[in-house]
Amino acid sequence: MQPDEKYLFTYKGCYFQPDLTSVEYLDSLEDFEIRDSDVFLVTYPKSGTVWTENILSLIYHEGHRDGSEKLTLLDRVMSLEYNIGNVDYASRPSPRLFASHVPYYLVPKGLRNRRAKVVYVVRNPKDVLVSYYHFSKTSLKLEEVEDFGIFMERFLAGKVLASLWLDHVEGWYSHRDDFNILFLTYEEMKKDLRSSVLKLCNFLGRRLTEKEVDAVVDQATFNKMKADPRANYEFMPPEFMDYSKGHFLRKGTVGDWKNMMTVAQNERFDSVFKERIEKLPIKFCWDINEES
């Protein structure tokens, strides 16, 4: 079952959303001018993107930490491949924060000089699948596939936004020496948010006081973010999201796949993904289910 062309198109082997970007714009990214102070958050969709965007914004923007800024998250962390507001990125002050779902081979050439920083967050693919499935029901820009089994087969075949999870993660890991990059897992962030914040500050060269770190950690908890419309993308125009069906931030847990996948579906997933997952230099946490 192929994805509906109304919702997805392919560009150099990767699926994108057609009404949010174009071939011409994606072509222009190769020569996108990179500043040494730029920070790029790269994820496969539904891997903690919005959460990490918030954390980066809290680390960089004092106004976000103390609540004095009314800027939405999209104003603080700009999407590289989906310039929704047609913003002039070149005129934005440094340091610029970007978020992207692109595979390693589609990033601007200037990122390969290893001066600008890349933060790559990876999440257990079974939880990604379940989160993605639920998100497709609320997003008006993604095709809704009612049957979870059919959706899972599409995910396993890479016929979804950003294409195959395995290719995305393997690509960035195997080319990590091309970039100034920090890898984090969603699960380690859930287990010990403070350590993850400190790791980010260290990588980014941001010196925060203990009190400022405490504020970042406190405001980046899932429940605080879900309650903040600026952090939960609730400012999105009505043509993007159907909030009667759910929110951008749903559960934010580890292990939710066990509430969704049948034994047979889990075995099917493992038969397709397990061999390649075991070769990755990361270990996923499959078993905890926490609501914190």
Rank of each mutant, 00 (worst) to 15 (best):
C14S: 11
C14Y: 07
Y15I: 04
P18C: 04
L20Q: 11
D27P: 03
D36V: 09
S37K: 13
D38A: 09
P45Y: 09
V50R: 02
E53F: 03
G63Q: 11
R65Q: 06
R65D: 01
D66Y: 10
K70T: 13
L71D: 13
T72E: 13
V77S: 01
S79P: 01
S79L: 09
G85D: 15
G85M: 13
Y89P: 01
L97G: 02
N113K: 14
R114T: 10
P125M: 03
D127T: 06
L129I: 00
F135I: 11
F135E: 08
K141G: 10
L142H: 13
E144L: 05
L156Y: 02
L156Q: 02
G158W: 00
W165F: 14
Y173E: 09
Y173V: 13
L182I: 10
L182N: 01
L184A: 04
Y186G: 04
K191P: 05
D192E: 12
C201D: 09
L208M: 12
L208S: 04
A215N: 08
A215C: 12
Q219R: 15
D228A: 11
A231Y: 03
K245T: 12
F248G: 04
L249H: 08
N259P: 00
M260H: 12
M260K: 07
T262K: 04
R268D: 03
F269T: 07
D270R: 00
V272C: 00
K283S: 15
F284T: 08
C285W: 00
C285G: 11
E291S: 15
